[in-house]
Every structure is written in structure tokens, then in C-alpha cells.
Write a protein that binds this DNA or RNA. Structure first.
Length: 429
RNA sequence: GGAGGGGUGGCAGAGUGGCCGAAUGCACCGGUCUUGAAAACCGGCGACGGGAGACCGUCCGUGGGUUCAAAUCCCACCCCCUCCGCCA
């Protein structure tokens, strides 16, 4: 959510910045709503002040010895006049405030200056590359062919039997490698990058989803539970972990907060029919290790660079070639002010595919969820800046390993860094 | 699922109809003292919105209601705690 005061003061500048992501801000609609709000607000406050005064008068009269009924009749007429108008004014002030809130909730975050212009992923700009895409001495198979050929391995048919398309079953060594990856990533972020591991609910209420920005606009991307309580399967650990700070005022000495968390993620993929239908690139259920940070405003730019580096470190240790791109305005997520995607090399597709997305939300999420910290210099609560990034999407990491580490005989070499997590196993066959 | 207790400022915790946005303690900030720190003492200190400001309004889990007046009384819901039952 944007700062309403910023919108009043710098509306034009914000509108211009938002065009970079293809969003047209209706400033006139906002201005007229805001003017209506102010009028209703001022009037209802006046009436309330008058009403309070009259009520207090009654108390004083009674205390000074007047009979209760007499005291009441002193102000009865005034109150009657006030009440008639007050109900109306308060109701309309409330309604307008709610309208403004919904209006604000529907505006995406303002892209930072560094965000390049552009419409879609074609316009994202490469920032750096790491490693050299391997040229395999044989025709590379894709991860489905590699995985299905393994003993145990990948099984999409049985997954479909259970749950339909976009699910997978893994068994044997592959299932173990999947689990090992989670362990490997969590250990790395905890031991080397200074994150605290957390375990959180996989079902959350609507408020948490409003806080991070999935609701109200993107309900169709979520799986909603049946039942008397309104609960949703989390689409990412970002939702429960970031909302840990919701409605809280963090003490300065507990900042910055850095959390790492492994959760399954559930996405309806409503808008992506026919996209990545083969294999486990795009699933309704997948595992992810997430990084979340809550930092002071002036630290968030540096924090995004560091966080992206922490995600990159996973790929480096696994020796998987990748590149980092900065998302253009048109490809930028709703709540983000700046996002780096990390893309891993897939030999079968001869191109880089997204495996991580690292974003700085600045105060956009924290304003929605009222996540603040107490600045000792002012003594006042200030909104934190929130960031998060995948480090990494586990399923896609597995895909990358299957493809980059495949051998001509159909086996898959276990990356060296992962072997301690697989009891020394060197090869999946 | 049954019975009882409770949700108040950053935290703990008073407050059962008007003098309460709210005692007190801790934490925090400023000062005195000190070579410095601690301790002690003095002062300050909730959040949000509006206003240039004086100041005004809202907020005591949430939503309704009673009343001239609600943190306080009534109703519903949510959450937490204790005991019993069930259970991985």
C-alpha cells in the first residue's frame, strides 16, 4: 500500500513512475475521494466533539447537585439535533475511508529508478552471469526423461492418478536428493548467511495475504480451503514469515530480522494454462526455501544485494551456471519496488530459466500489515522495509541438477556439495 | 467436545459507568551526581488520523447493543490460559 500522504503531495510523480509498469493511476478519482473524505471527516469530528461536550455537561450538573432527569433535559434538545446528523456523517465518513483503503490496496508498488522500462520478461536486463553453460558431449535429455529413467525417480502418471496435472511423485534416490537439497539450503543460510530458521503454518487467514499483497487482487491464484474458517494454502513462505512482524513494533536491537524457512507452496496457476505443462517446472505444489528480511529503510537497497547474493551462493556451491536479471517494470510483481530474478541454465532448453526471485518491497507490505520498529533516535515507530527471495525453489533446483549433471549412461552425478547430505552417495542410477 | 479464568500502552499490570487515553513497575529518552559506568534522584515517554498551529477526533481483542455518558453493563464472535475428555 502506498503512503496516502505521498499520493497527495507527489501524485503526478507517482503516476509517472507507475506508468513504467503499465499501470495508470487515476489521480482525479483519488483527489475527489480524498476531498469527500476530508469533508465528511471534519464534519463528523465536529459533531462528535459537540456531543462529548454536552455529555460531560450532564455529568457536571449532576455532580453539582442537579437532579439527574433535569440535567438530562438540559441537553436533550442539543443531542437530538446532533444525533440526527452524526449518524449520517459517521456512516459516510466510514464508507469513504473504506473506499479509499480499497483504492490504495489496488495500487501496485512504485518501481525504483533502477528498474528498466519494458512490458514483459523479454525486456528484463541481464546484470551478470556466473559459470559457463556446459556443453555436454551427447544430446542432453530434459529432466523428465532423465528423472523417469532413474530407478524410482520421477513419476507423473501416478501423480496425475492422485491429483491430476501439475503434480509429481518422486521416489528413491531422487526423493532423497530433493530432501537433501532442503537441508543443504537451510544449513547454509543459517550457518553462513546469518538467518534464523523458522517453521510456520502452511494455512493462513485472509489478513496475512492482504498484508503481503496476494489479496484482494489475486485470489484466483490461491487455493482456498472449504470449511467454516477462511483459510488459504500458502503460495510461498513469504506470506507467513513476513507477517510474523504484522501489527508489531520491533525493538531496534532485534533488527535486522533475517529468517529462512522451508515450506511447501501451493499455487493454482490459474493464468498459465498450457505453459510449462511438461515436467516439474510449474506445479501446483512445490517446495521452496525462502529468505525474508525486515530492515531499516536506509538499509533495504544493500539488503537486496546481499540477499540475492545468498541465493546465488546456493547455485555456486552446486556449480550450476546461472545469470541474474533485473525485472523490467512490466514484469515486476505487484508489491515489489525492485526484483532480481536468478535464472539457472537448462541444457535441454538451451536457455536460462527462473529459479529464484529476490525483491525489495520497501514499506509497501509493512504499511499494509503495520510492521514497524522503534527508532531509538526519534523514539517513534517507523515502518520496516521487507525483502524476500527464494533460495531456492527446490523442485527447479532438482530439475537443474538432473539436466546439468546427467551422464550419457542415464545416471546423474550427485553435486559434490550435496553428498554429505546424501550419506556420501555419488551417483543416482 | 465439556467446565472455569482471561484479552488494557514496547512489556508486565491496576482500573467495574462521568474527574480515564488510562495508576504503578520495567524498558526507553533527557538531566543531576560520577574520571567513566552502574546505582540513586529529577523530568519526559502510547498509537493512528486531521490541522500551519492552538487543538480536535478515533483507539482498552473484534462486531453489535444499553445509556445523556462505556475500558467498565448486555449479546455475538475471535484468541489465550487452566482442568476434564479425545488424540498424532
Amino acid at each position: 500500500m502506498l503512503d496516502i500522504r505521498a499520493l497527495r503531495q507527489d501524485g503526478e510523480a507517482i503516476k509517472t513512475a507507475l506508468t513504467k509498469r503499465g499501470y495508470t493511476l487515476d489521480l482525479d478519482a483519488f483527489a475527489s475521494l480524498d476531498a469527500k473524505r476530508k469533508q465528511a471527516d471534519i464534519r463528523s469530528q465536529e459533531l462528535q466533539a459537540d456531543r462529548k461536550k454536552a455529555s460531560r455537561q450532564v455529568g457536571e450538573l449532576i455532580k453539582s447537585g442537579m437532579a439527574v432527569e433535569d440535567a438530562k433535559s438540559q441537553v436533550a434538545e442539543t443531542l437530538q439535533t446532533i444525533d440526527a446528523e452524526l449518524d449520517r456523517e459517521v456512516a459516510s465518513a466510514k464508507a469513504i475511508q473504506e473506499e479509499i483503503r480499497e483504492f490504495l490496496m489496488g495500487i501496485p508498488n512504485v518501481p525504483q529508478d533502477a528498474v528498466p522500462a519494458g512490458n514483459d520478461e523479454e525486456d528484463n536486463v541481464e546484470v551478470r552471469q556466473w559459470g559457463t553453460p556446459k556443453t555436454l558431449p551427447f544430446e542432453p535429455k530434459d529432466h523428465v526423461d532423465v528423472g523417469e529413467a532413474l530407478d524410482g525417480g520421477l513419476d507423473f502418471e501416478r501423480a496425475a492418478k492422485l491429483s491430476g496435472a501439475r503434480f509429481s511423485v518422486m521416489s528413491g534416490g531422487l526423493a532423497r536428493m530433493h530432501r537433501a537439497l532442503i537441508d543443504f539450503m537451510l544449513d547454509m543460510h543459517s550457518d553462513e548467511h546469518g538467518y534464523q530458521e523458522v517453521y510456520v503454518p502452511f494455512l493462513v487467514g485472509p489478513e496475512a495475504l492482504r498484508g503481503t499483497g496476494q489479496l484482494p487482487k489475486f485470489a484466483e491464484d490461491l487455493f482456498k480451503m472449504e470449511g467454516e474458517r477462511e483459510l488459504y494454502l500458502i503460495p510461498t513462505a513469504e506470506v507467513p514469515v513476513t507477517n510474523l512482524a504484522a501489527d508489531e513494533i520491533l525493538e531496534a536491537d532485534t533488527m535486522p530480522r533475517r529468517y529462512t524457512c522451508h515450506t511447501p507452496c501451493f499455487r493454482s496457476e490459474a493464468g498459465s494454462h498450457g505453459k510449462d505443462t511438461r515436467g516439474m517446472i510449474r506445479q501446483h505444489q512445490f517446495e521452496k526455501v525462502e529468505l525474508v528480511q525486515m530492515v531499516r529503510a536506509e538499509e533495504s537497497d544493500a539488503a537486496l544485494e546481499a540477499l540475492t547474493g545468498h541465493a546465488e551462493a546456493v547455485l555456486q556451491k552446486l556449480d550450476l551456471p546461472y545469470r541474474v536479471v533485473i525485472l523490467c517494470g512490466g514484469d515486476l510483481g505487484f508489491s515489489s519496488s525492485k526484483t532480481y530474478d536468478i535464472e539457472v541454465w537448462l541444457p535441454s532448453q538451451q536457455r536460462y530459466r527462473e529459479i529464484s526471485s529476490c525483491s525489495n518491497f520497501q514499506d509497501y507490505q509493512s504499511r499494509r500489515m503495520q510492521a514497524r520498529w522503534r527508532n531509538p533516535e526519534t523514539g517513534k515507530p517507523e515502518l520496516v522495509h521487507t525483502l524476500n527471495g527464494s533460495a531456492l525453489a527446490v523442485g527447479r533446483t532438482l530439475v537443474a541438477i538432473l539436466e546439468n549433471y546427467q551422464n550419457e549412461d542415464g545416471s546423474v552425478t550427485v553435486p559434490e556439495a550435496l553428498r554429505p547430505y546424501m550419506r556420501g552417495l555419488e551417483r543416482l542410477t
